[in-house]
Amino acid sequence: MITALTLQELDVENVVLRGVIDLVVFRIFRFDPARNDAPTFQTYDLPDTAGMTILDALIHIKENMDSTLSFRRSCRSAICGSCAICANGKNLLACNTQVNDLKKVRITLEPLPGFPMMRDLVVDWEPFFDQYRSVKPYMVARSTPPEKERIQDQKTRKAYDEAAQCIMCSACTSSCPVVWTDGNYLGPAALTKAWRFVADDRDEITRERLAMVNNEEGVWRCHTIFRCTDSCPKKIDTAGSIESLRKKIIWHQLTGRI
């Protein structure tokens, strides 16, 4: 029988957790700009993580071990997108990821990469929402509305069904290596939002929207790395949305519509 103590002494990594290990070491990114010059990692040992999400673990650490730890959370049911963090190099929602599903005895938690750091696991989301606002994330219909609602058939609704699931957690934009090199790139979240309204036939400014993203800081900056799709907690094919936008732009250009 392997005990927790020997495991910690041996510094064993990559061991399948279930049924074998009863202790997980959390290596958490700590940085307080008011007190520290540089970030550090602090470790917290948590026994018995069965049935615990990463967010549960963070709350447990904050309530019982270190009240100075800062992180964002709100709904705890994967709909608000506040608790997106980077765990072992992969962006995910802390609230819908079981600790034991990561199958590691050592879990490194960092703030979302690609955004300015504020404190511990909290990042400044202002650049993200600037990108988001710049693509006009709302329906524009200037024609006179019909007596009741603007009718849409099920097939058309299905075209943007996936893109409409976005909860704006920023896991995709933050996971994008292109965003890490180019702070002006719109990023997958904003582009997926643009696609959501381009694919919606009730929206009446399709050409304006396509012109908005048809530039080198828009759809053409994407390198098709698929980290955005891989990290989306709602399983949206964000890279696919960017490809759909590109296809639509090319089609519009070939037919002389933009």
């Binding site: 300015p116 965003v179 090199t181 180019d182 980290r227």
Partner: peptide
């Protein structure tokens, strides 16, 4: 605080990413 974009940030960051298939293809 150090920058959060640019080539230096990319190189520091890319050594610590999880290697999904698409990321591997990119590298």
């Amino acid at each position: 605080m150090a920058g959060h974009s640019g080539l230096g940030y990319y190189l520091r960051r890319v050594l610590r990413v999880s290697l999904e298939t698409g990321t591997m293809a990119h590298l």
